[in-house]
């Protein structure tokens, strides 16, 4: 099932505390976006998933999975090779131009784009945990496609 951007309208209850870290002294925050509802919840630690969703990806501010993180959950794992399963516009959640490392979960392959709506420079597919996304997309990702 192809997910469109329209399904990602966020209920921004937890968005306020997911703003980018602005200084090195800022504590890391760990937010989770549930694509089914668009709800973001954040906390000081990586949260456990307690509903029937599947984690499909996790991205990080710093290399080696350091700094703040943003976890995306979906209603099902990715199918691979059958088009786009999910997509995320990062600016909605304060995560544009931040990603330095990522993890591929739920059988998903991640595609990074430097522009919104999967435009601009592209790198991927990232099929496994990647401690550094590389110079092309480091701190430049604005949208992610999950295939």
């Amino acid at each position: 099932m192809r997910r469109t951007v329209a399904t990602l309208i966020a209920l921004v209850a937890g968005l306020a505390i997911c703003t980018p870290a602005t200084a090195s002294a800022a504590p890391a925050t760990h937010c989770t976006l549930r694509l089914e509802t668009g709800v973001v919840t954040c906390g000081a630690r990586l949260a456990a998933v307690t509903n029937n969703d599947v984690i499909i990806g996790r991205v990080f501010d710093d290399q080696n999975y350091g700094g703040s993180s943003f976890t995306i959950t979906g209603s099902h794992p990715c199918k691979n090779g059958n088009g786009r399963d999910f997509g995320v516009q990062l600016a909605k959640y304060g995560w544009a131009n931040r990603i330095s490392s990522l993890q591929a979960w739920g059988n998903c392959w991640l595609n990074l784009y430097s522009g919104p709506n999967y435009n601009g420079d592209h790198d991927g597919e990232f099929k496994a945990d990647t401690p550094y996304v590389g110079p092309l997309m480091d701190k430049r990702t604005q949208s992610i496609g999950f295939d």
Binding site: T50, N52, V54, H76, P77, K79, N80, N107
Partner: peptide, 11 residues
């Protein structure tokens, strides 16, 4: 990885 795998996952 399997392209055939499409499961209703629970966590």
């Amino acid at each position: 990885r399997s392209t055939l795998t499409f499961v209703v996952a629970a966590v």
